[in-house]
Amino acid sequence: MPCTRYITANLPAGDYLRSYCDARRIEEYCRACGNYGRIWGCPPFDTDPLERLAGYGHIRIIGAVATLDAKERHRPADVSEAAAAAYAIVEDARRPMDARLLEAEKRHPGSRALFAGSCLLCGQGGCLRTEGKPCRYPDRARTSLEACGFDVARTAKELLGLPLRWSEGPVLPPYFTLVGGLFTKEKTEESEWTHA
């Protein structure tokens, strides 16, 4: 089982918006994903998701790092098994991270959490968006940094010191990095994330 730790960075929200948002380019990556237009947390959106982030003073970038040992990295027998293992590892790291982000929203009234990647609440292929119905979990569902147009690869590398790593054939990377964020009115403490 991978070991997960958190690394964070705090910066003014306006600086992050100016330096790390490239909505047009990032949406092209989203268009290439099978979740585009199929999950409520993914683009396209009826309104500009960045409008919801106006007025925030700070953002706490949260990186969850799931580190794998050599045995775990070499366990998959082929590329499809590696893809399934990667998805499971990321999902296992995401669930507690998402819960912590929602808890942080409660501790910081008026804040807005952005998850790391596509919504997991309904499971693969279970979102009601494809049926034209509203989200089942509007109180817990959140968009991601990338869905809002933020460059998470640059964010991870430059703000967290964690270049994203990818599988090489059936060999998993030494770690997976998930990048989420919490937009707040006031600066938050790193200790909320570095201590379990």
Rank of each mutant, 00 (worst) to 15 (best):
G181A: 00
G126W: 04
G55A: 10
L145K: 05
I61Q: 01
P173T: 03
E131D: 10
L17H: 15
C135R: 06
N35G: 14
T155W: 05
I39C: 13
A153E: 02
A82G: 01
S111D: 08
P12F: 11
F45R: 07
A196F: 05
K71F: 12
R100A: 15
T184S: 13
G180M: 03
P173V: 07
A147D: 05
A23G: 02
V152Y: 05
C42H: 03
R52V: 13
G161M: 01
A85D: 11
Y137A: 11
A84N: 07
A85M: 12
C127G: 03
A54L: 15
Y175N: 05
V179G: 04
E192G: 10
A84H: 03
R154H: 05
E72H: 08
P138D: 10
R154Q: 04
A113E: 10
Y36K: 04
R5V: 10
D69G: 07
R31G: 05
R95N: 12
L11Q: 06
K106Q: 13
L164S: 08
E51D: 15
R100S: 15
G181I: 07
D98H: 14
L121W: 11
E105W: 10
E168I: 14
R100V: 11
L172R: 05
L53Y: 06
L68S: 01
L114D: 00
S118H: 05
T4L: 08
H58M: 14
G132C: 02
E158W: 03
C30G: 06
F45H: 04
C148W: 08
D48P: 01
E105F: 09
G149R: 00
I89H: 02
C42F: 02
W193I: 05
A84S: 09
R95A: 13
R94M: 12
E105P: 10
L162G: 01
A86V: 11
I26G: 00
E72C: 10
R129I: 03
A70W: 15
A9D: 04
Y137S: 10
Y137E: 10
I89M: 07
T130K: 02
R31I: 08
A141C: 12
H58Q: 13
Y6R: 03
A70T: 15
V90W: 11
K187P: 00
R142T: 09
L128S: 12
L160K: 04
L101M: 09
K187W: 06
H195E: 14
V90P: 09
W166H: 15
M1K: 07
A156T: 05
T8L: 03
K187L: 08
D69E: 08
I59K: 01
E91S: 12
Y56N: 10
D15N: 09
A13G: 11
G14E: 15
L178I: 05
A23M: 02
G117M: 00
Y16T: 06
I62A: 08
A54V: 13
G117H: 01
Y175K: 08
L160W: 01
P44M: 02
E192P: 07
R95V: 13
A93Y: 00
G117V: 03
A147T: 00
R52Q: 15
P49Y: 00
R73P: 02
R24Q: 14
E168F: 13
R165Y: 04
C30T: 07
A153L: 06
T130E: 05
A153F: 00
D139C: 12
C42A: 00
A82V: 05
T47M: 15
A88Q: 08
I59P: 04
C3E: 15
Y56Q: 11
D151A: 01
Y56R: 10
G180Y: 00
